[in-house]
Structure formats: C-alpha cells, structure tokens
Amino acid sequence: MAFGLRIFTQRTSDTIAQPILDADNGEVLMHTQPSVSIVLGNRSPESPGTLYISSKQVIWVSDVDRSKGYAVDFVSISLHAVSRDPEAYPSPCIYTQIETGDDEEEDEDEDEEQQEIMDWSSGISKIKEMRLVPSDPSQLETLFEVFCECAELNPEPMLGEPEEEHNWIFSADQLNSEALGEDASNWTFSENLIDSIGHTNGDNDLAHNVLQLHINDQCFEDAEEMDQEHDKNNSHQ
C-alpha cells in the first residue's frame, strides 16, 4: 500500500487540470472545489489550485502550473477536521494528518525549513500535515462531509475482509444452539443487552456455555495478550 503524500501528474491534458482516475477499479470523482490553497507541513501556502476529491484519493492541482499537483489516498489520511481558530492557522481550513508509513522520528521541523530552498517536490512523502484552504470558507462543512464519506469508502484492506476465522466450537451444546439459525451477523449488542448474554431466544444452553467460559478464564486472558502483541507488531510495520 502506498503511504503518504505523492506528486500527482496524471491529468487528461496539459491544458485541462482534470485528473485521470482509475475508473477500471471503480474510482469516481466525488467533489471538485475550485480556488483552494494547499499548505504542506510548515511550508508556505501554494495557491491557487483546484481540489479534486475522488472515491479513493484527494488531489490538488495548481491553477498556475498545471504540471504541479499532489495526491494522497484516503487510507493515508489519519484524521481530518475543520480548523477555524485564527491562532492555529490564519485562514479557516480543512486540517488533515497524513500517515507516512515512516515510523522513524525525525526532526521534521528543521528538515522542512531547509527544504524550502529545494525543489517543490522534494520530501513530500514525509509530509505529515496538510491544510486545504478554500477561498470560500462556507465550503468547509461540505468538504468535511465529503472527506468523511470518502474515508468510509476506504477501510483498511485487511479489515475489509469478511471475518472467517470465528468458527471455533467450544462444546457440543454450542453445536446445537448455534446450528439452529442463531446468525452472528444478526446479533446486536445494543438491542437486547440482557438477553444476548446467555438467554438468547430463550435458549438455555447458552447460559451453560457462559458458565463454561468462566471456567476457561485463564486461557481467554492469554488470548487477549496475544492479540495485543499482534496489534503491537502491526503498528510497527
């Protein structure tokens, strides 16, 4: 998976900024916002440009130099928010944090300052913050909602897989009660809290199972620790 911000050059032509999207994989344009400045990390604002929000990524293309553009996938956007306080940033904007896939803690602020004299495209894969400043602040709420909608269209590839590893059988009783059409996907925690523990659909076998689970407390705690270890490993990738 490609992490972080990248240079974007896939336009339909040199005169039209419209980006080329991956239509074969279902990528569609969700929103276009003209007259948007972009601020990467601590760099100076670049403006003006046009913001294209697709179902997969956020693309900004400069209006002045159409060969200049940036893109970031929604899977790399950790957080987005509407920022209005002039003390945090002089203009109201959409504030985003970008996951770079680079775990090393570097002294980025100093790096950034040195890079201002370098080429505009250098070091952008390490950018961790991006601000999008529309000339019309009334568009911020719309942009925020579009970002939310698109983020939900782009779950982690791993989490998007159906959960298939939960077919363990713990007891013969379970075989009976589970086989009789008690579908896991229909079970909701919120609707029937009490009944869902041990007495679902009046099936007393389940209460028996809960008792057995208490007996097996120790092994469940081990399993939880293993899960935590697993998560820890994942987060360091």
Binding site: L79, H80, A81, V82, S83, A88, Y95, F144
Partner: peptide, 15 residues
C-alpha cells in the same frame, strides 16, 4: 498547538 482550533474531527479507525 495546531490542533487547538479544531472543534470537530473525523478519526480513521485504523489509527
């Protein structure tokens, strides 16, 4: 300090 101004935000579940 840059997050001071933010009043509402969307956080990606994976982070």
């Amino acid at each position: 300090p840059h997050m001071l101004s933010v009043r509402n935000c969307f956080i990606r579940g994976s982070v």
